[in-house]
Design a protein around this nucleic acid. Sequence first.
DNA 1: GTGGTCTAGACCACC
DNA 2: GTGGTCTAGACCACG
Lengths: 128, 128, 128, 128
Amino acid sequence: MISFDGFHMEEGIPIYTQIVLFLKRGMVSGTVISGDELPSRRLLSARLGVNPNTVQKAYRLLEEEGLIQSQAGAKSCVVVSEQQLHGLREELLEGDVKPLVSAMAQMGLSKSEALTLVAKFWPDEVIT
Amino acid sequence: MISFDGFHMEEGIPIYTQIVLFLKRGMVSGTVISGDELPSRRLLSARLGVNPNTVQKAYRLLEEEGLIQSQAGAKSCVVVSEQQLHGLREELLEGDVKPLVSAMAQMGLSKSEALTLVAKFWPDEVIT
Amino acid sequence: MISFDGFHMEEGIPIYTQIVLFLKRGMVSGTVISGDELPSRRLLSARLGVNPNTVQKAYRLLEEEGLIQSQAGAKSCVVVSEQQLHGLREELLEGDVKPLVSAMAQMGLSKSEALTLVAKFWPDEVIT
Amino acid sequence: MISFDGFHMEEGIPIYTQIVLFLKRGMVSGTVISGDELPSRRLLSARLGVNPNTVQKAYRLLEEEGLIQSQAGAKSCVVVSEQQLHGLREELLEGDVKPLVSAMAQMGLSKSEALTLVAKFWPDEVIT
DNA sequence: GTGGTCTAGACCACC
DNA sequence: GTGGTCTAGACCACG
């Protein structure tokens, strides 16, 4: 069962989009792999404090992309190919980094200032 | 008169929010300073291809934050204190960098991988 | 044992409702009479290709209307009085004919056009 | 502006389906013709006592069938070709008459009994 | 004022 | 218990 530890809601972005992104990022990072079971609509909606339909919409979008499979009465589970993973990685990096770079450039930051800032906000590396 | 060169719309974010952010970023970067005149609602809406009401909403929000002043029959203009600028800078950096760091960490990237990526996406420095 | 020959599912109407209607119509037509045994939930669900719970719900509704009787460990059977039959007939005819008449009137058909259409769709009379 | 006089809700059928059917029947009858304006989502939802989204769903389905056109900020209006009208007529008659015939046949009525019943329920012809 | 989207709660059929 | 659908209310961008 996929845990949603580390998930935190962000204002201004549709919740179902945040759920979709969280799972896609997990797939790219390898913490979410093919065969993993997704929490049910009810369980996750209770966990996140949102409506079951919001979770359902996220799952439906992922299913339309072919990243998960759902069957009535059975648990939904992840089914993602290596090829899809590669595409996902590109898609996510573009979507995350480009707006940041655009915003920082608009704020007049130089490349080195930007890198320093990102480094500053990066959480302390944990030795595991 | 403030130019909106470099402004480009992004899907999924309310347009008035994008206008507000563009102006705030300009203030932080120093390209938008106290006393600068804002284009009229009609002019800017035509320039951006959006509805005048959308521009109006952006201006209203900025005025409520005390960053611009509007008077009937006169051009709106920027009025931002040094103190406000400092707060703005923190607010914007937090809002831009934190989600990126969060997203990249979720994707399993290390700090150095993230920095390399940001550097890769940074536009070539222009000698002006 | 009541046969469900001639039963066919219709989309957009709850299945349990269709089962209830099928049996009520059989009672009105005389093909289902007091004392007739109903197929077990398991048997009928297999026969119709639906879930046993769906059959159970249909049987429960009929029992609440006093049209059938169920006893633990025994076959359910039909128990319907002459008075109930009369009421059923009115209820079903109203429920079936009124919407049709309403729909056809909305479509601008005259009474005679409507009758011709019904006649046209009526299956060929079978000599038995 | 299309009037919804004569519309009455029926239990057990999705409301948006009833709205779609009402309009389709109007098109077939000629009371709803190309160019007619539809009431706005808000107006009709208030008129019928339902949620604006329910009306919107009906309108969206009709638009996907190419029977009406919607534009943000403008009234939705009917655009239906002669060819579509012919197909609509067949579709509606099938959908209305077939279930009735099926139901009456299940109740053991003969063709002539059925016709008599339909005639009996038909509203008195009005001389206009 | 218009239509479009997001979030929400209840019900249904099914395992 | 599961996923799917219908109805509902608030917000957004737009004319």
